[in-house]
Design a protein around this nucleic acid. Structure first.
Lengths: 239, 239
DNA sequence: CGTATGTTTGAACTGGCTCAAGATGAGTGG
DNA sequence: CCACTCATCTTGAGCCAGTTCAAACATACG
């Protein structure tokens, strides 16, 4: 995972467990917070994927990070410096910043490591787009990074839980350009497809129950807004 | 200064003053540390400019941040995640990380703010290159950001202490392309030039003693390597 | 089964890259 | 102080990847 300082997950996890935590769920497209909001919580992704993005002055939004299972995000001291949205069905652990600061005296290093883990996504973004690679190479690099990131499950084939539009946005190319790059990599066998999903590593889902593998993602027209407060009460953990 | 969380400089400064600090100097082109080095110090820029960069696998290096007077940089817990080099003649305050962690218990928030100040450069990088603006617009955006950053001095005209090559590297365009963009903005009066230096805001240096305004920068063939250790002893402050 | 959204494909255009050669000026050495 | 040298900047011309526009297609979802 690049040359960034690695986080001692156990230590951070134990540190965080001192606080009263809880879980929330989100559906694809729902937002966790917006740029400019007051920052009250840090999050840990338990299941699903989150995208971090900035709203450009020209009305265009720019995705700069995808945050996956095991990752922390949302460490801001004052206000949110970006927007966070669910890419997929999402399960998060919520960690109150106020509590973190309170127990920070007991273990400042763990606190720093937690914040470091959150800024990892900004640092990795810096590494993206070195040189002026072609669109295909950008995609290839992305696949490589994602591959080594989610190979932990042991399963060979893995589904990228992002739409091509999001991917194009993240890589900084037009959707059409990305599409052509996808076709190209598929022909070379570096990428596979089933329906609209991209698969890396191994073959697409097993021939039988492929119906089951198609989770929700698009969410046409039912935002199904779950307020943070309402879901907070659902599952209190830790503390 | 964008929508990023602002750092309480006074508080961080007071926090840091508890430690034994010292100053070092560097000449243009000299490096502070390299990607992969063990991280032992955080720095504060007193005078001059620093560039942060990554060495690409293809041998190309990519500048992703310019760090100026008043800015902190170099907050890594384990190893350096990038390389830092002097753009100009440089004066820095050195802050030992070990000491920071030691006194972190007394004021974890100040510690966090210091680290936040250091990661600011990574965050700002994320904002660069939103959309697919033309080279001229990238340059214009850079000028605007630099302008609001160094207008603190009160002087109207300000010299950009970077070579066009560095600027092109930072903006992710070819030097030739940047050069054409510079010409374009100069014609529009959004930018001025004296010799090889770019000026923003006001007119170039006063007609009289312009000889004085030309500080060293290029440094042809005399690296004049000052080891960190040797210069450490020079000016101990704080503590 | 119908529909909206996301994906695919084609074709023309264009901005930036590349290569190459010339001009400038910062720094060196006499 | 001046002439020299070489890195940096400048300019031109051609090329190509990626963008844009537009229209057909497919797939999730209701």
């Amino acid at each position: 995972m690049s040359k960034l300082a690695l986080v001692n997950d156990d230590q951070v996890g134990a540190f965080v467990q001192q606080l009263r935590l809880w879980r929330i769920q989100r559906r694809p497209g729902q937002s966790l917070y917006h740029e400019g909001d007051p920052a009250e919580f840090v999050y840990r992704v338990d299941k699903g994927w989150v995208r971090l993005l900035l709203d450009g002055e020209d009305g265009l939004r720019r995705i700069f990070a995808f945050v996956g299972p095991g990752d922390y995000f949302g460490a801001n001291l004052q206000v949110r410096d970006c927007t966070a949205e669910a890419c997929t069905d999402l399960q998060l652990t919520v960690i109150p910043v106020a509590g973190l600061l309170r127990i920070g005296r007991t273990d400042p290093v763990a606190l720093l490591e937690l914040f470091e883990a959150c800024t990892k996504h900004y640092r990795e973004r810096v590494e993206v787009g070195r040189g002026q690679p072609s669109a295909a190479e950008k995609l290839r690099a992305f696949i490589a990074r994602m591959g080594e990131r989610i190979t932990s499950g042991g399963r060979s084939g893995i589904c990228l839980p992002f739409s091509q539009v999001d991917l194009a946005n993240y890589l900084g190319v037009a959707p059409e350009t990305l599409c052509r790059a996808v076709v190209q990599l598929c022909e070379r066998g570096e990428l596979a497809r089933h329906g609209r999903r991209l698969w890396i590593g191994g073959c697409p889902p097993p021939p039988e129950n492929r119906k089951a593998s198609q989770g929700t993602w698009g969410l046409r027209r039912r935002p199904c807004l779950v307020t943070q407060e309402s879901s907070n009460a659902d599952q209190a953990i830790g503390g």
